[in-house]
């Protein structure tokens, strides 16, 4: 596996002393980190409990240095109409959640469940020590869908996946 894609493909020219730690990350990852898509929430914790059209997934733990909150708003057609995230974590965790929201919009539940952490690893060229961030993002997707299904009495169906 090629763990690191250097920005601008200048890895060979960059002298060792000029390699800052950002350079361990890909251009795509830094782009998502610096301009995160779909940051926000569809309401307070209390309001979200009432909203049947929104599934909320919160995964991770503060003591592990990563907490991801993913919210999916499901339209009448059963597709993800909108997605929002908030993440406490490192740059990779933020980039994975931002990417996930982009990929989720417009997908059916079934298609949303098909997003794999390995797809994010590839897209963001995550270094091996950061693969857990993509696992967490995949967990967040599953948790948000599970929450939506439970709110709408589809627990059985969610289990079937």
């Amino acid at each position: 596996m090629n763990p690191v894609r250097e920005p601008g493909g200048e890895s060979k020219q960059t002298p060792a002393h000029r390699k800052s730690f950002q350079m361990a990350y890909s251009k795509q990852l830094i782009e998502h980190y610096e301009n995160p898509r779909n940051v926000g929430t569809f309401g307070t914790t209390k309001e979200l409990k009432e909203r049947k059209d929104v599934g909320v997934g919160i995964v991770g733990a503060p003591e592990c240095g990563d907490v991801m909150q993913l919210q999916l708003q499901i339209g009448a057609d059963g597709k993800v109409a909108d997605a929002k995230f908030k993440t406490f974590g490192c740059g990779s965790a933020i980039a994975c959640s931002s990417l996930a929201t982009e990929w989720l919009k417009g997908r059916t539940m079934e298609d949303a469940m098909k997003i794999k952490n390995t797809d994010m690893v590839e897209e963001l060229a995550l270094p091996p020590v950061k693969i857990h961030c993509s696992v967490l993002a995949e967990d967040a997707i599953r948790a948000a869908i599970k929450d939506y299904n439970e709110k709408n009495g589809k627990a059985e169906e969610a289990h079937a996946h």
């Binding site: 914790t45 919160i58 991801m68 406490f88």
Partner: peptide
Amino acid sequence: RNLSPLYDMFKEGIDI
């Protein structure tokens, strides 16, 4: 902090 779910929870008075 604007990106942090923990900060939202804190502002809502939730004990993390």
